[in-house]
């Protein structure tokens, strides 16, 4: 597999490490049901069969966390961007 790193360009997947589903929002620690929300945040995943957005770290590269759009049925990758909006902005 080759991952298109927005900073380095396409690189072998071996340079990256995979975390999982992107876009999960860390709950408000002060919410009344915070513990339940944290349980969900830590453990429950969409595990979608199809196009997903997921977090990869370019560990043996620029060390950017990136959000990769990838199809879990075919492994086709249709996009990637920096996870941090600040980095994204700076890169532009």
């Amino acid at each position: 597999m080759r991952i298109p790193c927005p900073f380095c360009g396409p690189r072998d997947s071996q340079e990256f490490s995979f975390l999982g589903q992107a876009g999960l929002k860390r709950p408000d620690p002060n919410a009344p049901d915070a513990q339940m929300q944290f349980h969900d945040y830590v453990h429950i995943r969409d595990n979608k069969a199809g196009v997903t957005q997921e977090l990869w770290l370019h560990a043996n590269g620029c060390r950017s966390w990136i959000v990769v759009t990838r199809n879990t049925l075919t492994h086709e990758i249709t996009g990637s961007e920096f996870a941090s909006p600040q980095v994204k902005e700076a890169a532009q």
Partner: peptide, 13 residues
């Protein structure tokens, strides 16, 4: 292989 997948095949690394 360290990424989520439903394709019953792996990669070279």
């Amino acid at each position: 292989d360290y990424y989520t997948s439903y394709a019953a095949r792996g990669n070279l690394p």
